[in-house]
Each structure stands twice: as structure tokens, then as C-alpha cells.
Amino acid sequence: MPLPTGPFILGETMTQLIQLITFGIVQGLTYALLASSFWIIYSTTRTFHLAHSLTYAIAGYAVYVVSVQLAMPLWIGLLASLLCSALAGCAIEFLLYDKLRKRGSTVLGIFLSSLGVAAAGTALLQLIFGPMVKQVPGFPNATLSMGEVTVTTLQLTGSAAALVTIAALYVLLTFTSIGNAVTAVRTNPRLSMAVGIRVESVSLLVFAIGSAMAGLAAYFETISFVAYPTMGLQPVMFGVIAVFLGGIGSVKGAALGGFVLGFLLVFSGLFLSQNLGVILVFAVLLVIVVFRPDGLVRSPIGR
């Protein structure tokens, strides 16, 4: 198909550029948050945890139940989101993955059971809450504009929360003893077991942290738009892509991958129609996996 040309590209380039950068930052931070949330789980426990998408949806419904059905304030809804997602993630790790690993399950076995949880859980959500989307109104949202460039307060809040969370994760991993334990397990589980680190506890911890981070993203999506049973699929999928895009060696790599993905999706709009931008993402992913499997950020630790 012919590429769209003409007036769409030759508009006021500066305005478009600044607007695109704004959107890119907003999108990029969201994906960076999701990527980091998947990364901490994946890199530490080597679990291809696609049931993360279920965790995400559970967080979305948690804020709906608390802030709409129980009519509590939105900040309690936020706490509920974080708590429920962390619990959901830990439950999956404790009841399933841990057992599978101890039984010597293959990578494929864990991957498939993860998909099984995601499928069954999403269907259960639909059976419980019905297929209709659930709206959680009430966040005081406004559009701020600087000239023709705009951003909403909701986008600003979500981006700031994502940034702070990623930074907090970085600090936790780099400067605390808990972070050292996590890094030890990530780089060498056997050795860390030998030096007395309880690998099971660390696994639970990273599932709690990663799931709560996904819960945060889900909270903002729900209060911005709606919650529905399959809401986690696309964000988590893109989060996974971002992790491998950026590199699985460090949180910086994962976060950068998310950021790049967001920018890629938004900036492809400079040259391409939106639907072609999505194709570009998968094409870039293919290229990265094939030619630079370490991702954009190579790291001495990791693979």
C-alpha cells in the first residue's frame, strides 16, 4: 500500500515534534514501568510469566470494586490495586511456579502453565464481572496546554508515578541489602543459595514487587479509561517486547526498552500510518532478537 504523504507530514513540524515527544514520554514511561515489572520477575526467576496479564486485570478490577462498588476514595482504590496485584502475583508464584520448578519442569512447561493461568483467570473475571467494561470516574482530569502542545493531568500523574517507581526499584536494587540478595539470585541462584540467601523468599519478593508495579499501571489505565477482562494482554505483551528490546541484563535496559518502544510507536507517526507503526514494532523486535539478542543495553551480568 502507498505510504501516506502530503499534508499530514508537511504540517507544522515543530509543533508536531514537541507533541510527539510529549506523547512519547507519556507512552514511554508507561511501557518502561510495565517492562520493569516484567523484567524483575523474569530476570530473577527465569519465569516467562505471561500470567502477568491476569495480575494486571485483577488490579484494574480491584480499583473498580473498591472505588465504585464500595464507593471508597480513589487513593484507597490505588492501595487495593497494588495489594491485590501483589497478592495475585505471589499466589501464582507460590502455588504454581515454585512447585513446577521443584518438579524439574521445562521452560515450556512453565510457559504453558503460565498461559493456562492467564486464560483461565481472564475467563473467570468475565464470569464474575460480566463482559461489560467497568468505568471508575472521579479523577479530576484537565487538559494542560502549552501553545498547541497538550498533556492531561492524568497523564502527568501517571508518568510521574511510573518514573518514581522505576527510580525506586533502581535504588532498591542498587543500594540496599534486599537489592543485593535479588541481584545475587538473578546472577547465580545456586551460589546465592550456598551463601545462605533464601531463593524462595527472594522469588516471592520479586513477584510482589513486579506485580504491584503492573498493578500501578493497571490502576492508571482503569481510572483513565475502563477495566475489562482482557485489559492486560496488550500492555503486558508490549512490556515483554520492551524487556527484550532493551536488554535483560539490568533494570536500566528494561526501562530503556519500554521507553524506546513507546517512542517508536508514537514517532513512527512521523512517517507512517498508525497501523504500520505497529508492524514496525514487531519488525524491530525480530531484528533485535536475531542480531542483537542482548538488547540495546548490554550488560556484564545477565545471560
Partner: peptide, 10 residues
């Protein structure tokens, strides 16, 4: 089907 998958793997 999801339950079969999980239980089967376990």
C-alpha cells in the same frame, strides 16, 4: 482448558 493445562504441567 486453562486448568487442565496447569494441572497437566504440574
Amino acid at each position: 482448558y486453562g486448568a487442565i493445562l496447569v494441572l497437566g504441567m504440574v
